[in-house]
Design a binder for these strands. Structure first.
Length: 425
RNA sequence: AGAGAGGUGGCCGAGCGGUCGAAGGCGCACGCCUGGAAAGCGUGUAAACGGCAACGUUUCGAGGGUUCGAAUCCCUUCCUCUCUGCCA
């Protein structure tokens, strides 16, 4: 959520930034400013009314103490009108605050200056590319075929026990998953991220804090009985650990990592490109998250990007990095880099990581602040990224590492898998 | 799930109708002390909103009520802890 004070002081920049998302926000912003002004006026009026009744109450107290009950009772009569007034003003204030907030929830984050304008993924900007695309043998298969050939992932079985999008990994497929998780966590902790195991169900306040609610209500699985949501990403529980916090400047930066399954309803996203592991309702992901001093957050974003690069380089997967354009940028993000692995057998790029700086957008909702050197409270910047999302990395490995007689395991993973090849026995 | 206890500042913890934004401690900042540090001593230190400021208002889990006046009394609700039950 944007800060009203910021909008007030930087209206032109806000509008210009939002225009990169192909949003003409001028109506909304004007409305925000109008409501904000009205809110302040009502607040002042309320404050004055309350100040008056407080003063009278104090006087009554003093009169009673000095035994002047008659005078005190006389004063009491005066308070009833003030009481009515303050009640009415209080209601007005509430209405205005609610209307203002509802509007603010609808306004996405203002993109960073580096974000290119654009409509869709076609306008994303490729900023880096690394790794050779392997030449596969003639009978090369996409990963869902490989999964069957080598009996390592069973999609049918998942259909049976749950439904589409819940694959069953077995044998070396399951072991490879576990190897990837361990490898990612080890890389992240070695880079200074503290490992966490987090709850997979979160309450409404948490969903709201990171911006999934109320905006993306339908994307999360909801457990009605207990009014909890299955997490769509570790970002939600991880970031919400710091909801309503006032940190010392010396606490920053905070860096953490965690492995969690992620659950997404993916309502309305069926189509040609959702085969196999490409899009699932349940998948595994290792996330990295940072809470930063505002002046250092973009440097931190670069560090995160570099970190993810080293992992992909070690895995020897061909990948590229995109700077998302305004139209493709997530609601809460100011700047996002997407990592995509080239899936050779499918001949397409698969998103495997998304690294974002949310600046104060989440922190504002979360009330995540720190006390700066001058002793003033200031909102932190939050950042997070996948390091990495498992299914598409797995798809990339299966497809790019396939040979005629099996699938090779990337060298860095062998210590984790305990085997170097997946093949039919 | 049943019974009981409790939710107060950055943290811990006292307060149980006006003198309470709230004792005390820890932490933090500054100063003294020291060759330097620790310890010790002194001073300061809540947040949000409105206001150029002085200052005002709000906030003691959340929401409602009683009262001229509520951290304190009443109701509702959420959460935590302890015991019992169940259970990996």
């Amino acid at each position: 959520m944007l800060q009203v004070a910021y909008i007030r002081d930087h209206k032109a920049e806000v509008l210009k930034g939002l225009a990169k998302r192909q949003i003409d926000a001028s109506m909304m912003i004007d409305q925000v400013l109008l409501l904000d002004e009205a809110r302040r006026a009502t607040q002042t009026e309320l404050d004055n009314t309350l100040a008056e009744s407080n003063a009278i109450s104090k006087e009554i107290g003093n009169l009673f103490k000095s035994g002047k009950a008659a005078e005190a009772n006389e004063l009491k009569a005066k308070t009833s009108q003030l009481k009515e007034d303050s009640k009415a003003l209080g209601e007005q204030l509430n209405e205005k605050v609610n209307a203002l907030n509802e509007l603010l929830y609808k306004i996405p984050n203002v993109p960073h200056l580096d974000v290119p304008a654009g409509n869709s993924e076609a306008d994303n900007e490729e900023v880096y590319r690394e790794g050779d695309i392997p030449k596969l043998h003639a009978a090369a298969q996409p990963h869902w075929e490989l999964a069957k050939t080598y009996d390592i992932i069973d999609f049918e079985l998942g259909n049976k026990i749950t439904g589409a999008g819940f694959p069953v990994y077995k044998g070396k497929g399951a072991k490879l998953q576990r190897a990837l998780i361990s490898y990612f966590l080890d890389k992240n902790t070695a880079a200074g991220y503290t490992e966490y195991q987090l709850p997979l169900l979160v309450n409404e306040a948490s969903g709201f804090g990171t911006g999934q609610l109320p905006d993306k209500e339908g994307q999360m699985y909801h457990v009605g009985e207990d009014d909890l949501y299955l997490i769509p990403t570790a970002e939600v529980p991880a970031t919400n650990m710091y909801r309503d916090s006032l940190l010392a400047e010396t606490d920053l930066p905070i860096q953490l990592t965690g492995y969690t399954p992620c659950f997404r309803r993916e309502a309305g996203s069926y189509g040609a490109h959702v085969r196999g592991l490409n899009r699932l309702h349940q998948f595994d992901k290792v996330e990295i998250l940072r809470i930063e001093h505002p002046e250092k957050s973009y440097q931190a974003l670069e560090h995160m990007v570099e970190h993810v690069k080293t992992i992909l380089k070690e895995l020897k997967l061909p990948y590229r990095i995109l700077r998302l354009c305004g139209g493709d940028l997530g609601f809460t993000s100011a700047l996002t880099y997407d990592f995509e692995v080239f899936s050779t057998a499918q001949d397409r790029w698969l998103e495997i990581s998304s690294v974002s700086n949310f600046e104060t957008f989440q922190a504002n909702r979360l009330k995540l602040r720190f006390k700066n050197k001058e002793g003033k409270t200031e909102l932190c910047h939050t950042l997070n990224g996948s390091a990495l999302a498992l299914p598409r990395v797995l798809a990339g490995i299966l497809e790019n590492y396939q040979t005629e007689d099996g699938i090779d395991i990337p060298e860095v993973l062998i210590p984790y898998t305990g085997f170097s090849k997946i093949q039919n026995s």
